[in-house]
């Protein structure tokens, strides 16, 4: 069973804007994929639908075999605890220490304090910020703040990690480092979907790539055949038939 699958998903905003239009794809367990496309192509909307930050206007979003669009408001928090989300603008609590920011999902889950300490330190160690756990967020650089966001997203060991332009504001060197971190997390078993417009970078990583254009998936280049642009699988622009 796929971890995530979209079946004929459409999202229309008030005012008639079609953010997504009949999107079909699925993400297997342990997979790491990139979601590309120009800004406004619907990348963020697609990620937000998975984490139920928004609900689709049509179609089904399945997570772990369950139709998330049918989840009641009370069930939404449980889903969000299984999905780690990394935002471009970090969404950190600026009046708290690094440690407290990362600990937030575990406090919400009600873990014992000793377990929280252990897991937060492990997550901070993974992103290379263990030495800064007592610092306040505003004292960190942009890259460091992004890594705090990543630590917070992975600390509860989610089955799925979503990242929305995680390298958007970083210089190339830091971006490469972050991507390497994602690859490591993926090798440890986390399923990852990253929205980015940095095509140069993902070309080197040799992973599956989904391209959105005007709310539709126009390319789904899997890892099987990635020897160059020539082998991109061009999907028909009508309803996508990707399994």
């Amino acid at each position: 069973m796929s971890l995530v699958s979209f079946e004929h998903v459409a999202k229309r905003y008030p005012g008639g804007v079609h953010a997504l239009n009949d999107v079909n794809f699925s993400l297997e367990r342990g997979e790491m994929a990139f979601l590309t496309g120009h800004s406004g192509a619907g990348k963020s909307t697609l990620l937000r639908l998975i984490a139920l930050l928004e609900r689709p206007s049509r179609g089904q979003v399945l997570f772990d075999g369950r139709n998330v669009t049918r989840l009641s408001r009370r069930q939404v928090p449980m889903l969000r605890r299984r999905v780690g989300v990394i935002f471009q603008d970090h969404k950190l609590l600026t009046d708290r220490k690094v440690f407290d920011n990362v600990a937030l999902p575990l406090l919400i889950a009600g873990l014992p304090w000793s377990e929280i300490k252990r897991r937060v330190r492990a997550a901070l160690d993974q992103v290379g910020l263990l030495a800064k756990e007592t610092m306040q967020v505003p004292g960190l650089s942009g890259g460091e703040q992004q890594r705090v966001g990543i630590a917070r997203a992975i600390v509860a060991k989610p089955s799925l990690l979503l990242a929305d332009e995680p390298t958007g504001n970083l210089d190339p060197e830091l971006s490469a480092e972050l991507m390497q971190l994602f690859c490591t997390l993926n090798e440890l078993g986390t399923t990852i979907l990253i929205a980015t417009h940095d095509i140069e970078q993902i070309r080197q990583l040799n992973r599956r790539r989904l391209e959105l254009k005007a709310g539709q998936i126009v390319r789904d280049q899997s890892t099987m055949h990635t020897n160059g642009d020539d082998q991109y699988e061009i999907l028909p622009s009508g309803p996508a038939s990707h399994e």
């Binding site: 984490a51 930050l53 408001r73 009370r74 928090p77 449980m78 889903l79 969000r80 605890r81 989300v85 935002f87 969404k91 950190l92 609590l93 937030l104 999902p105 919400i108 889950a109 917070r152 509860a156």
Partner: peptide, 10 residues
């Protein structure tokens, strides 16, 4: 909002 994003219930 952040708390809701990381799975806090109402």
């Amino acid at each position: 909002e952040v708390m809701a994003l990381v799975g806090a219930s109402t």
